[in-house]
Simulated scan of single mutants.
Amino acid sequence: MILAVASGKGGVGKTTVAVNLALAADEELTLMDADVEEPNSHLLLKPVIENEIPVPLMVPVFHRDRCTGCGRCVEVCAYHALALIEREVLIFDKLCHACGGCVYFCPETALTEGERTIGWLREGHAGQIRFLQGEIVVGEALAVPVIKALRSRRGKNLTLIDCPPGTSCPVIQAVRGADYCLVVTEPTPFGYHDLRLLVEMLKVLEVPAGVIINRADLGDDEVEAYCRQENLPVLLKIPFDPEIAHSFAAGTPLVTQSPRWRQIFAELWRKLKQEAVKA
Protein backbone atom coordinates (compact mmCIF):
# COMPACT_ATOMS: atom_id res chain seq x y z
CA MET A 1 0.00 0.00 0.00
CA ILE A 2 1.20 3.50 -0.89
CA LEU A 3 0.04 6.55 1.07
CA ALA A 4 1.03 9.94 -0.33
CA VAL A 5 1.21 13.13 1.73
CA ALA A 6 0.79 16.17 -0.53
CA SER A 7 -0.10 19.85 -0.38
CA GLY A 8 -1.18 22.39 -2.95
CA LYS A 9 1.29 24.91 -1.55
CA GLY A 10 4.48 24.83 0.49
CA GLY A 11 4.78 25.68 4.15
CA VAL A 12 1.53 24.13 5.36
CA GLY A 13 3.12 21.35 7.44
CA LYS A 14 3.26 18.46 4.99
CA THR A 15 6.65 17.15 6.15
CA THR A 16 5.69 17.58 9.81
CA VAL A 17 2.61 15.43 9.21
CA ALA A 18 4.49 12.79 7.18
CA VAL A 19 7.31 12.28 9.69
CA ASN A 20 5.10 12.30 12.79
CA LEU A 21 2.67 9.94 11.10
CA ALA A 22 5.46 7.50 10.24
CA LEU A 23 6.76 7.53 13.80
CA ALA A 24 3.30 7.17 15.38
CA ALA A 25 2.48 4.20 13.14
CA ASP A 26 4.85 2.10 15.24
CA GLU A 27 5.31 -0.52 12.52
CA GLU A 28 7.74 -1.36 9.76
CA LEU A 29 7.25 0.96 6.80
CA THR A 30 9.15 3.02 4.25
CA LEU A 31 9.18 6.81 4.45
CA MET A 32 10.11 8.26 1.10
CA ASP A 33 11.04 11.95 0.75
CA ALA A 34 10.18 12.74 -2.86
CA ASP A 35 10.54 16.51 -2.51
CA VAL A 36 13.84 16.17 -4.35
CA GLU A 37 14.40 19.90 -4.87
CA GLU A 38 14.33 20.57 -1.14
CA PRO A 39 14.17 17.35 0.91
CA ASN A 40 13.84 17.94 4.64
CA SER A 41 12.24 14.86 6.22
CA HIS A 42 15.69 13.80 7.39
CA LEU A 43 15.98 16.92 9.56
CA LEU A 44 13.19 15.61 11.78
CA LEU A 45 13.64 11.85 11.39
CA LYS A 46 17.47 11.88 11.67
CA PRO A 47 18.01 8.54 9.91
CA VAL A 48 21.34 6.75 9.65
CA ILE A 49 22.24 6.89 5.93
CA GLU A 50 23.70 3.59 4.75
CA ASN A 51 23.83 3.97 0.97
CA GLU A 52 24.10 6.71 -1.67
CA ILE A 53 23.24 6.03 -5.30
CA PRO A 54 23.75 8.43 -8.22
CA VAL A 55 20.85 9.09 -10.59
CA PRO A 56 22.16 9.19 -14.17
CA LEU A 57 20.50 10.85 -17.14
CA MET A 58 21.25 9.93 -20.73
CA VAL A 59 22.86 12.73 -22.76
CA PRO A 60 24.05 12.57 -26.37
CA VAL A 61 27.77 12.38 -27.12
CA PHE A 62 28.85 13.91 -30.45
CA HIS A 63 31.38 12.19 -32.78
CA ARG A 64 32.53 14.83 -35.26
CA ASP A 65 34.31 12.41 -37.58
CA ARG A 66 31.01 10.62 -38.38
CA CYS A 67 28.81 13.71 -38.88
CA THR A 68 27.73 14.74 -42.39
CA GLY A 69 25.93 17.88 -41.20
CA CYS A 70 22.46 16.68 -42.26
CA GLY A 71 20.83 18.33 -39.26
CA ARG A 72 18.37 15.51 -38.63
CA CYS A 73 19.21 15.46 -34.91
CA VAL A 74 18.36 19.15 -34.55
CA GLU A 75 15.05 18.66 -36.39
CA VAL A 76 13.80 15.91 -34.08
CA CYS A 77 14.83 17.58 -30.80
CA ALA A 78 11.65 19.02 -29.27
CA TYR A 79 13.59 20.69 -26.46
CA HIS A 80 16.05 22.68 -28.62
CA ALA A 81 18.97 21.03 -26.84
CA LEU A 82 21.02 20.73 -30.07
CA ALA A 83 22.34 23.25 -32.56
CA LEU A 84 24.21 22.60 -35.82
CA ILE A 85 26.96 24.97 -36.96
CA GLU A 86 28.36 23.68 -40.24
CA ARG A 87 29.35 20.11 -39.23
CA GLU A 88 29.61 20.80 -35.51
CA VAL A 89 26.72 19.79 -33.25
CA LEU A 90 26.49 21.81 -30.04
CA ILE A 91 24.83 20.00 -27.15
CA PHE A 92 23.10 21.96 -24.37
CA ASP A 93 22.86 19.14 -21.86
CA LYS A 94 20.82 21.11 -19.30
CA LEU A 95 18.02 21.37 -21.90
CA CYS A 96 18.19 17.68 -22.83
CA HIS A 97 15.26 15.53 -21.58
CA ALA A 98 16.98 12.23 -22.45
CA CYS A 99 14.30 11.18 -24.96
CA GLY A 100 16.94 9.53 -27.17
CA GLY A 101 15.42 10.83 -30.38
CA CYS A 102 18.63 12.40 -31.70
CA VAL A 103 20.57 9.17 -31.19
CA TYR A 104 17.83 7.05 -32.76
CA PHE A 105 17.34 9.18 -35.88
CA CYS A 106 20.97 10.05 -36.64
CA PRO A 107 21.71 8.21 -39.92
CA GLU A 108 25.49 8.18 -39.35
CA THR A 109 25.52 7.22 -35.62
CA ALA A 110 27.34 10.50 -34.99
CA LEU A 111 25.50 10.73 -31.67
CA THR A 112 25.72 8.03 -29.03
CA GLU A 113 24.43 7.75 -25.48
CA GLY A 114 26.42 9.06 -22.55
CA GLU A 115 25.49 9.82 -18.93
CA ARG A 116 25.61 12.63 -16.43
CA THR A 117 24.55 12.59 -12.78
CA ILE A 118 21.53 14.77 -12.06
CA GLY A 119 20.78 13.67 -8.50
CA TRP A 120 21.34 11.23 -5.64
CA LEU A 121 19.29 8.68 -3.77
CA ARG A 122 20.02 8.10 -0.09
CA GLU A 123 18.89 5.04 1.85
CA GLY A 124 18.98 4.40 5.56
CA HIS A 125 16.99 3.58 8.68
CA ALA A 126 15.54 5.35 11.68
CA GLY A 127 14.55 2.54 14.02
CA GLN A 128 12.11 0.31 12.16
CA ILE A 129 11.46 2.98 9.53
CA ARG A 130 13.24 2.46 6.22
CA PHE A 131 14.15 5.88 4.86
CA LEU A 132 14.57 6.83 1.19
CA GLN A 133 15.41 10.32 -0.03
CA GLY A 134 15.99 11.82 -3.44
CA GLU A 135 17.97 15.01 -3.97
CA ILE A 136 18.54 16.76 -7.28
CA VAL A 137 21.88 18.37 -8.07
CA VAL A 138 21.70 22.15 -7.61
CA GLY A 139 21.06 23.84 -10.94
CA GLU A 140 19.36 20.84 -12.57
CA ALA A 141 15.81 21.32 -13.81
CA LEU A 142 14.60 17.73 -14.22
CA ALA A 143 13.19 16.50 -10.92
CA VAL A 144 10.95 13.82 -12.46
CA PRO A 145 13.74 11.32 -13.34
CA VAL A 146 15.05 11.53 -9.75
CA ILE A 147 11.58 10.89 -8.32
CA LYS A 148 11.04 8.05 -10.76
CA ALA A 149 14.32 6.44 -9.67
CA LEU A 150 13.32 6.95 -6.03
CA ARG A 151 9.92 5.31 -6.53
CA SER A 152 11.56 2.33 -8.21
CA ARG A 153 13.35 1.45 -4.95
CA ARG A 154 10.38 1.52 -2.60
CA GLY A 155 10.17 -2.26 -2.01
CA LYS A 156 7.03 -4.22 -1.14
CA ASN A 157 6.19 -2.97 2.34
CA LEU A 158 3.83 -0.12 3.20
CA THR A 159 5.17 3.19 1.87
CA LEU A 160 4.52 6.75 2.99
CA ILE A 161 5.58 9.36 0.40
CA ASP A 162 6.36 12.95 1.39
CA CYS A 163 5.55 14.60 -1.94
CA PRO A 164 6.72 17.92 -3.38
CA PRO A 165 4.28 20.82 -2.95
CA GLY A 166 2.11 22.07 -5.79
CA THR A 167 0.55 20.35 -8.79
CA SER A 168 3.44 20.24 -11.29
CA CYS A 169 5.06 17.24 -13.00
CA PRO A 170 7.18 16.21 -9.96
CA VAL A 171 4.03 16.02 -7.82
CA ILE A 172 2.23 13.93 -10.42
CA GLN A 173 5.19 11.52 -10.58
CA ALA A 174 5.25 11.23 -6.77
CA VAL A 175 1.49 10.71 -6.33
CA ARG A 176 0.70 8.56 -9.37
CA GLY A 177 -0.23 5.01 -8.36
CA ALA A 178 -0.83 5.83 -4.69
CA ASP A 179 -3.69 4.05 -2.94
CA TYR A 180 -4.60 7.17 -0.99
CA CYS A 181 -3.46 10.77 -0.72
CA LEU A 182 -3.45 12.76 2.50
CA VAL A 183 -3.81 16.42 1.54
CA VAL A 184 -2.43 18.97 4.01
CA THR A 185 -3.78 22.50 3.74
CA GLU A 186 -4.51 25.64 5.75
CA PRO A 187 -7.67 27.78 6.06
CA THR A 188 -6.42 30.77 4.07
CA PRO A 189 -7.25 32.08 0.58
CA PHE A 190 -3.95 30.68 -0.73
CA GLY A 191 -4.54 27.33 0.97
CA TYR A 192 -8.09 27.14 -0.43
CA HIS A 193 -7.00 28.07 -3.96
CA ASP A 194 -4.16 25.55 -4.11
CA LEU A 195 -6.23 22.83 -2.42
CA ARG A 196 -8.73 23.05 -5.27
CA LEU A 197 -5.96 22.65 -7.86
CA LEU A 198 -4.52 19.62 -6.07
CA VAL A 199 -7.90 17.95 -5.67
CA GLU A 200 -8.61 18.38 -9.39
CA MET A 201 -5.23 16.80 -10.15
CA LEU A 202 -6.03 13.84 -7.89
CA LYS A 203 -9.34 13.35 -9.68
CA VAL A 204 -7.52 13.03 -12.99
CA LEU A 205 -5.08 10.55 -11.44
CA GLU A 206 -7.99 8.69 -9.79
CA VAL A 207 -6.34 8.81 -6.37
CA PRO A 208 -8.80 9.07 -3.43
CA ALA A 209 -8.00 11.71 -0.82
CA GLY A 210 -8.64 12.98 2.68
CA VAL A 211 -7.70 16.34 4.18
CA ILE A 212 -5.75 17.61 7.17
CA ILE A 213 -6.30 21.27 8.03
CA ASN A 214 -3.25 22.76 9.74
CA ARG A 215 -3.52 25.96 11.82
CA ALA A 216 -7.25 25.20 11.72
CA ASP A 217 -8.22 27.87 14.26
CA LEU A 218 -6.92 30.68 12.05
CA GLY A 219 -8.27 31.99 8.75
CA ASP A 220 -11.77 31.32 7.40
CA ASP A 221 -14.12 28.39 6.73
CA GLU A 222 -13.83 28.23 2.92
CA VAL A 223 -11.62 25.12 3.06
CA GLU A 224 -14.11 23.17 5.18
CA ALA A 225 -17.00 24.28 2.98
CA TYR A 226 -15.10 23.07 -0.09
CA CYS A 227 -14.36 19.72 1.56
CA ARG A 228 -18.08 19.24 2.29
CA GLN A 229 -18.92 20.18 -1.29
CA GLU A 230 -16.43 17.65 -2.69
CA ASN A 231 -17.21 14.94 -0.09
CA LEU A 232 -13.62 15.02 1.11
CA PRO A 233 -13.23 13.69 4.65
CA VAL A 234 -11.46 16.06 7.05
CA LEU A 235 -9.39 13.53 8.98
CA LEU A 236 -7.64 15.91 11.38
CA LYS A 237 -7.61 19.57 12.40
CA ILE A 238 -4.33 20.80 13.86
CA PRO A 239 -4.57 24.05 15.85
CA PHE A 240 -2.08 26.90 15.75
CA ASP A 241 0.00 25.68 18.69
CA PRO A 242 3.37 27.10 19.87
CA GLU A 243 4.29 23.58 21.07
CA ILE A 244 4.19 22.32 17.49
CA ALA A 245 6.19 25.30 16.19
CA HIS A 246 8.85 24.90 18.88
CA SER A 247 9.13 21.17 18.13
CA PHE A 248 9.69 21.73 14.42
CA ALA A 249 12.16 24.59 15.01
CA ALA A 250 14.18 22.32 17.31
CA GLY A 251 14.18 19.51 14.74
CA THR A 252 12.30 17.22 17.12
CA PRO A 253 9.29 15.16 15.98
CA LEU A 254 6.24 16.18 17.97
CA VAL A 255 5.16 12.60 18.73
CA THR A 256 8.44 11.82 20.49
CA GLN A 257 7.84 14.43 23.16
CA SER A 258 4.05 14.62 23.43
CA PRO A 259 2.04 11.48 24.34
CA ARG A 260 -1.15 13.35 23.41
CA TRP A 261 0.03 14.02 19.87
CA ARG A 262 1.42 10.50 19.50
CA GLN A 263 -2.05 9.18 20.26
CA ILE A 264 -3.63 11.65 17.81
CA PHE A 265 -1.29 10.65 14.96
CA ALA A 266 -1.64 6.94 15.79
CA GLU A 267 -5.41 7.31 15.48
CA LEU A 268 -4.92 9.19 12.19
CA TRP A 269 -2.77 6.31 10.93
CA ARG A 270 -5.59 3.85 11.70
CA LYS A 271 -8.09 6.09 9.90
CA LEU A 272 -5.85 6.34 6.85
CA LYS A 273 -5.43 2.58 6.56
CA GLN A 274 -9.20 2.17 6.79
CA GLU A 275 -9.80 4.87 4.16
CA ALA A 276 -7.22 3.30 1.83
CA VAL A 277 -8.87 -0.11 2.18
CA LYS A 278 -12.33 1.37 1.44
CA ALA A 279 -10.95 3.24 -1.58
Rank of each mutant, 00 (worst) to 15 (best):
P107L: 12
T109I: 02
T109L: 09
T109F: 04
A110K: 05
E113D: 05
E113I: 12
G114S: 12
E115W: 10
R116P: 02
R116K: 15
I118N: 01
G119N: 06
G119T: 08
W120D: 01
L121V: 03
R122P: 00
R122E: 12
R122L: 05
E123L: 14
G124F: 07
G124V: 07
A126V: 04
A126C: 02
G127I: 13
Q128I: 14
I129C: 02
I129S: 10
Q133K: 14
G134T: 10
G134N: 11
G134M: 12
I136V: 15
V137S: 02
E140T: 09
A141Q: 11
A141N: 02
A141H: 09
A143H: 03
V144M: 08
V144N: 05
P145M: 14
V146N: 03
I147R: 12
K148S: 06
A149Y: 07
L150G: 00
L150P: 00
R151I: 04
S152K: 08
S152Y: 00
R153L: 10
K156C: 00
K156T: 14
K156H: 09
N157H: 11
L160F: 13
I161S: 05
D162M: 10
C163I: 08
P164H: 13
P164W: 13
P165G: 02
P165N: 10
G166M: 07
T167W: 06
S168K: 05
P170N: 05
V171H: 11
Q173C: 03
Q173H: 08
A174Q: 05
A174L: 05
V175E: 08
R176N: 04
R176D: 03
G177A: 11
G177S: 07
A178K: 08
A178E: 04
Y180S: 00
C181A: 13
L182V: 01
T185G: 07
E186N: 03
E186M: 10
E186S: 06
P189T: 01
F190L: 07
H193C: 04
H193A: 13
D194M: 13
D194T: 14
R196N: 12
R196G: 11
L197H: 15
L197V: 01
L197W: 06
L197A: 05
L198C: 05
V199R: 07
V199F: 12
E200A: 15
E200C: 04
K203D: 15
K203L: 02
K203P: 00
V204K: 14
E206T: 04
V207Q: 10
P208Y: 15
G210W: 14
G210Y: 13
V211M: 15
I212Q: 05
I213S: 00
I213T: 04
N214V: 04
N214W: 11
